[in-house]
Amino acid sequence: MLSATQKQQFADDGYLVIDPQIDSATLDGVRERIGNGLLLADGEGNSRTQDAWKLDPGVRDIALAPTVEAILAELHGRKARAFQTLNFRVGTQQPVHSDTIHFNSDPAGCMCGVWVALEDIDENNGAVVYYPGSHKLPEARMAEVFAEPDLGARRAPPPQGAMTWVRRLAGRNPVFATARNYPLYEEYIARLVCRLELKPALATIRKGQAFIWAANLLHGGSITRDPLRTRHSQVTHYYFEGARYHRPLLNEDGKVRYFKPAWIV
């Protein structure tokens, strides 16, 4: 299905633009029902709907597109399994990050994201910004962030209180100050980009195209130059079979806690 050139590009650059072969009626239906209907706003002020596949069969169909699953299996040598969808009406302008801080695996690299355009996306309506080849950098964990003297000095301590001790006694994951410490990670990544003089690129893709990125590729949301325009799109995150999965932001103490994702079926 993929050429040797396409496979090599993904290996070298950490991304690939493909035709997911999703019919236009499905794309239009999701854009209308989710983008213009059920859209919510997350805690960071970014307009998006998470896991709308539970509500809308079109979102599920995009996430489970056979062509996408086949291409991901070719690229990773394992079967892909979708576990999260995010639907957007406008660009996020999200700071640059790597998905490995949110979703990781053992062995590493058994995760990826796929961004499907529900309308044409260009440099003016909030295309994804990414850094080709950055997936080859060492994964940045919170330990590296806190090791920076000034960032570590601003680290928020874990919450204390009765519920914290109840969780510990029950053997459940401890509670960390994730929301307060995550901006330190974003600052760390911004410094990394500047120090290494990484060159950005924009994922300007047409309606119906899909942008695949490797787990550790640095990416974010570009500036929306035309605030009157929408940027209808859907992201699906995938893990790959035969690995163990964890969320590094929940492992601030360095102990890896594996979990079982809720698969999209």
Rank of each mutant, 00 (worst) to 15 (best):
L16G: 02
Q94K: 10
Y238S: 06
T85M: 06
R172H: 10
H237V: 02
G29Q: 11
H135N: 13
M1H: 11
S134K: 02
P157A: 06
G171T: 08
D253A: 09
C110F: 11
R141T: 15
A210Y: 08
L169T: 12
E32C: 07
A243R: 05
G45Y: 00
G220D: 08
Y245W: 00
V145S: 03
H102Y: 12
I223P: 00
G29R: 13
D99I: 00
G58E: 05
S222T: 03
N251W: 11
Y15G: 09
G58N: 09
A214Q: 08
G161C: 08
L55Q: 15
D150Y: 04
G242F: 05
I264W: 14
R33L: 03
T100A: 08
S47R: 11
T26N: 15
A179P: 08
R155Y: 07
G126F: 01
L55K: 14
R48G: 14
E32D: 15
V17S: 09
R231C: 05
E187A: 08
E69G: 05
G152A: 00
S233T: 01
A170Y: 07
L75V: 04
R191M: 04
D13A: 14
Q234P: 05
A262P: 15
S24E: 13
V128R: 02
A203H: 05
S3E: 10
K260L: 09
I18Y: 13
F103N: 08
I189W: 08
P107T: 10
R247P: 11
A25Q: 11
